[in-house]
Design a protein around this nucleic acid. Sequence first.
DNA 1: GGTCAAGTTCCATTATTTGAAACTTGGTTT
DNA 2: AAACCAAGTTTCAAATAATGGAACTTGACC
Lengths: 274, 274
Amino acid sequence: MSGGPQGDGTVGKALAVLDRVAAFGRPVRFGELLEESPFPKATLYRFVQTLTSQGMLSFDPERQTYAPGLRLVRLAHAAWDQSSLAPVARPHLDALSREIGETVHLAQLDGGSVLYVDKRNAREPIEMFSQAGKVGPAYCTGVGKAMLAWVEPEALDRVLSQQSYHRFTDHTLTSARALRAELARIRARGHAFDDQEHEPGIICIAVPILTQQHRMLGAVSVTTSTDRGDLSGLAGLAPQLRATADEIAREAQNWRFPDQTRQDLKRGEQPCRA
Amino acid sequence: MSGGPQGDGTVGKALAVLDRVAAFGRPVRFGELLEESPFPKATLYRFVQTLTSQGMLSFDPERQTYAPGLRLVRLAHAAWDQSSLAPVARPHLDALSREIGETVHLAQLDGGSVLYVDKRNAREPIEMFSQAGKVGPAYCTGVGKAMLAWVEPEALDRVLSQQSYHRFTDHTLTSARALRAELARIRARGHAFDDQEHEPGIICIAVPILTQQHRMLGAVSVTTSTDRGDLSGLAGLAPQLRATADEIAREAQNWRFPDQTRQDLKRGEQPCRA
DNA sequence: GGTCAAGTTCCATTATTTGAAACTTGGTTT
DNA sequence: AAACCAAGTTTCAAATAATGGAACTTGACC
């Protein structure tokens, strides 16, 4: 019942190994995995064998290294298609991108981190997976703060404690205290800014995607650089962002993320189907 | 030792369940999974619980449905980055796309199917995961046939037997026999065509990505429609495709896919590092 | 309030995982 | 060339986790 990261028997342990391999960010040798593994050699060895035989890891026999396998790409396609906001949001992101002509991101919260699920670049062909599927910090990005500001109070403590508060720039908020104050401002204002908190010269405005019941599903942002724009310019885009987010929320609610609880329905609140 | 799809203990069984959920292509109820499952109710139930608690599946409590989870998207990002040709190929695909102005695909072979790992659209912003991560048939696509033509003879039998040979159009090759003949032509010619074998009106030219030792790593293709072009027009692009594929192969070999076996090295063949 | 299907939990049995230790392999040193 | 060493692989009795029949709960619909 407890959603523990490593509590679930053999399968949980094997997936933890998979995570370790992915976290290396480069092909990794068995010995390297062994060093930081809680498992004895033979056990880790069998996990790695199993995962490789399953296509979840790929093995380079020349260098004797393991890397996450292509089967994950297949599975992720299905996940992206079914469990993310991206399919619903796509036409709205296209429209927003066309209107505004700047980089647009769609993100969801995934275990205290921001998971970018889609992206639009104005000019060039988009960079693909290198962006979709990427994770980033929540406490110092526009989409991250926009989402955190609407996380339920009970869940917020845990999420705030998961942040690293690494100081990327002079503007980075480096404590839960400072972040809480910022989240209050964001709630009052309805949107979040990133004022070079993650990367120098990069600024952005983000709005949360909220259901009618104020459940937070994700966030949309528009990014630019201090060369080309400023925060007040971005602030002017808030209405368009808000409208986009609302449209995404409405459709998501109808098709994928209904959030009427049974209690809500019993209390006679109006169903959300159009 | 045998890389059987379901031979590896509990982990293999759990991953088989994950595949089943992904294959549905839509959120699925427990009962639906149970119907076509070889496992008894309680066993399947625990698998689904474990996978959900691990984030490999997401559960919609309102509709009581399961779908592939976002953790897969995170892991797939790492897989795409480390195990696919895409990062190496990106600049070359960009260049090819700019020169030719038609849709370009990068694909790899994954268990008898074609896995598209990257794509360039000429005009519009690219469709993301909806294409990268997508799988398609090998026997009736340009990239598929180009890759099959350079699979080692011993492995080919098995791969050919995995094809469905479904007749998508009048031009589809519907037997291993017909396909073998086509593969011989492709080997002789150096590139493959798709003459509306998968979709009416869609044609393409594809070349394999081959290492110096003729190990097949993947394929690149240019697609167009019968409205805008024809096969002889596509044939004219062969040199540019060949050049792109060779550049990708050279870099891949240096950085990621060295394919000198130990025997090769002992026999004193020249190492492939630049 | 009764009926039914779908989903969830229980627990003795059974099969799988576990991990220390022994072994193999390939490369390096004496 | 033999001895050595580190990295990877296999073995097998003990420990642990998976299994699945059956009983139970839940909520929807008479």
